[in-house]
Design a protein around this nucleic acid. Structure first.
Lengths: 218, 218
DNA sequence: AAAAAATATCACCAGTAGGTGATATTTCGC
DNA sequence: GCGAAATATCACCTACTGGTGATATTTTTT
């Protein structure tokens, strides 16, 4: 029926392509759809069917162009390589280690709060350990540690009497977890994470940095 | 065929019950299987089929006895009500707020590290917001805050100049996140979370508490 | 003993997942 | 123009999900 119709109309209309040939465009569409699905619906909905549907093409193309979900996740990882560098302005003070770390934690918090994709990847890493999450985790933590060392490089060194890497790990983990909790439940440990709560957390972070890294006297 | 066989044997063997009638036992088996599935395979595998298979009974019983997965999750929440009170010995010092909080964070870390079920529930809460996670979250956070206030009740009050709730939220979030990261990737922010790393984190937590809550001079 | 209620299981449904072979369409090289 | 290669889609497979109606079995009540 369809063919007969098209054959009949052939003389009055253009050949009417059944689909357009645009590999690069499709690849882009697939990659974008993959990031959108992961960012907006979470890792449990991240699959070939959902991505193909989002990209408006056949799922076979995901296998052909990216080698399946794993290859697609690798590409997302590359895309992630410098996410934080893009989103964060590099205007940190350099006069004191405590203030620099506090600034850094604040910027990190804002960047993570604004980036659905990175948050979902963090959650995915916590929830599962698969080839995909291992790769994504590597890409993300590399981007993060690069950014941190880049930011702290110009700051004065902390006192060797304190274990700065351990303290920073605790503070970064705390900030990261509070951002995740804010997005999911909106509160943590009885503390409402609304605008006022976030302000208190910011102040507490700075107080912790100052007291831990000395220099309490500005 | 089966019926003919059993009818034929009826005169030589016991009636041979097709199944045993043991409602309470089945309920227990289902609840236990549900907790096992969630603890060992995570929320993404937590479903009626997996739980029924684990309990060795038909999934229909989950609907009949618990009203589906939601009711089952409620029962898990009840079971969770005092998890931390069971797993943690209450021998905390009470001579200083800083030391008490540091002790509390250490105990909380140990308890969370040892309890697969609670960790998976925390991750579930971060990943999804469904009627089930909302209820589980409520049960868990109630248990946690009860335990915290019970532990801190006998401690001296912190200086009113510091925002103790905000500081504690950051530290608890940090400890919680580090435990999750230890179980998934084994490291965080470049810090290896092996025995040595955990020791450094414990020490850093105590240092943070002491510096933030004064009393740095023991 | 017969009827009623409780208990447990089975068989099936529609929906969706990941994955693949066959096929249609388009473009490029000759 | 013609065949080969690239491109895109379709149709189908198996496996698993949550959910439900029908049925078989056991116990209790009458």
């Amino acid at each position: 029926m369809e063919e007969a119709f098209r054959a009949g109309m052939a003389k009055m209309t253009k050949p009417e392509k059944a689909w357009i040939r645009d590999r690069e465009g499709k690849e882009q569409a697939i990659l974008k759809a993959a990031m959108t699905v992961l960012a907006e619906r979470g890792f449990s909905k991240f699959g070939v069917n959902a991505v193909a549907k989002g990209a408006g093409c056949d799922k076979q193309l995901i296998y052909r162009y990216f080698g399946g979900l794993e290859g697609l996740a690798d590409k997302i990882g590359e895309e992630l390589a410098d996410w934080i560098g893009r989103e964060v302005s590099p205007d940190t003070r350099t006069d004191s280690y405590a203030e620099t770390v506090a600034d850094l934690l604040g910027k990190f918090s804002e960047a993570l709060l604004a980036n659905d994709l990175v948050r979902q990847i963090v959650i995915w890493e916590l929830a599962e350990s698969t080839p995909i999450t291992v790769r994504l985790s590597a890409a993300r933590s590399r981007a993060l540690s690069d950014w941190i060392s880049r930011t702290l490089k110009t700051a004065p060194s902390p006192s060797p009497r304190v274990d700065a890497p351990a303290i920073n790990a605790i503070l970064i983990a705390g900030v990261q977890h509070l951002v995740l909790a804010e997005r999911s439940s909106g509160s943590f440990a009885g503390l409402d994470l609304d605008e006022a709560g976030r302000r208190r957390v910011r102040a507490a972070i700075r107080a912790l940095c100052r007291s831990a890294y000395g220099e309490g006297e500005i």
